[in-house]
Design a protein around this nucleic acid. Structure first.
Length: 346
DNA sequence: AAGGCGGGGAA
DNA sequence: TTCCCAGCCTT
């Protein structure tokens, strides 16, 4: 039996049972693939179910508001996925008659859809033989062939794409793609692969030489530093001040408390605050009696600091005053969700 | 070609 | 702590 047949036989008996499996609706498959970019199944499944429940069709999504879409995405990360999803739904609705394109190259032209996602939709929904190569597939293939080509270079990606393209089943391209991914996720795992139960272990050159952990080959990883964010909780007359980020950096389009990045002494923080938001502060002890730029006269400002991973962008000055009771309808990034709920507990 | 973009869970 | 996950876009 050839490799594809072995994988498909294994998949039929051992494939994961997931909510979007079995659907051939390109919209549903599209949504699931976007959600699961760089996202584990366990983390994203709840998001998928809520999203598909609220926006069951492409037209319903096209009619949705960006804030609501982002709120459904809240906490998931990589928020550009959500913005692109909405943008492309509206684009298809308006310019393609609401019909998802069936042509692979047309799909790839859509914002947020790359080679992998187009391959998934084309193979699963339209039975086209396009190999979907994700992180799982790189690992499985590099081990199967003890292939030292680096997976994080242009040439390496193309190399494994061609390899997968040679192996893919012509009869069941979608199932083949999912089989390879399931194998990578449940058997050919990064740390401790379960080679003894692998359906293709007799084909695997890495297994034969017991060098599974040498694959996949990647370039050295880069350093990543954390940073401090100082959030300003400005509370006046049952309203809270929030800021909508509209720049180019992280958390674009999401709301946040006004913030000042960097590890700063309180007095410097007050000075920064003054400069950034035009708040009049004579001294740190006077901070509670500040006159502010909104319509309120009495303010209660507190500083909070939070440690995050790799945040390096400054907030935009785009302040809103919203009733505290309505704060939950705005989409926040995960650090703010945690922060606000920690305030709730006090 | 390289870097940015989130957040979580496993080891 | 580090790694890496159903990747894609911008520069």
């Amino acid at each position: 039996m050839d490799l594809a047949s072995l994988l498909l036989t294994w998949y039929d008996q051992n494939g994961r049972s997931l909510p979007w499996r079995g659907s051939r609706d390109p919209y549903i498959i599209w949504v699931s693939e976007i959600i699961f970019q760089q996202t584990r199944i366990e983390q994203g499944t709840g998001y998928f179910l809520r999203f598909a429940d609220r926006f069951p069709t492409l037209d319903s999504l096209a009619g949705g508001e960006e804030d609501e879409v982002l709120r459904l995405w809240q906490g998931l990360g990589y928020y550009s996925r959500a913005r692109n999803l909405l943008f492309t739904a509206r684009y298809i609705h308006e310019h393609l008659g609401g019909k998802f394109p069936e042509d692979f190259d047309s799909m790839k032209k859509l914002k947020g859809i790359g080679d992998y996602t187009a391959s998934c939709i084309a193979s699963i929904c339209f039975r086209q033989t396009h190999a979907a190569v994700d992180g799982n597939v790189y690992r499985v293939l590099s081990r199967l062939f003890a292939d030292s080509m680096s997976i994080d270079t242009q040439a390496g990606k193309l190399h494994f794409k061609k390899l997968a393209q040679q192996l893919i089943s012509r009869d069941r391209p979608g199932d083949f793609n999912e089989a390879l991914m399931d194998l990578g996720a449940t058997v050919c795992k990064p740390r401790s692969p379960s080679c003894s139960i692998c359906p293709v272990n007799s084909w695997c050159q890495a297994n034969e030489k017991k060098i599974q952990m040498k694959f996949p080959v990647k370039a050295p990883t880069r350093e990543k530093s954390g940073s401090v964010i100082n959030y300003l909780l400005i509370n006046a007359e049952n309203h809270i001040v929030i800021n909508k980020r509209s720049g180019k950096g992280i958390w674009k389009g999401l709301y946040e408390l006004p913030m000042i990045p960097g590890e700063l002494a309180p007095v410097d923080l007050a000075a920064e605050c003054l400069e950034l938001y035009g708040l009049k502060v004579n001294s740190l002890t006077e901070i509670r009696r500040v006159k502010h730029l909104l319509t309120h006269t009495e303010l209660d400002i507190r500083f909070y600091s939070a440690q995050t991973n790799a945040v390096n962008n400054r907030t935009d000055n785009n302040l809103l005053s919203v009733p505290i009771g309505k704060i939950e309808q705005y989409p926040f990034a995960k650090p703010l969700v945690d922060f606000l709920s920690s305030l709730q507990e006090k």
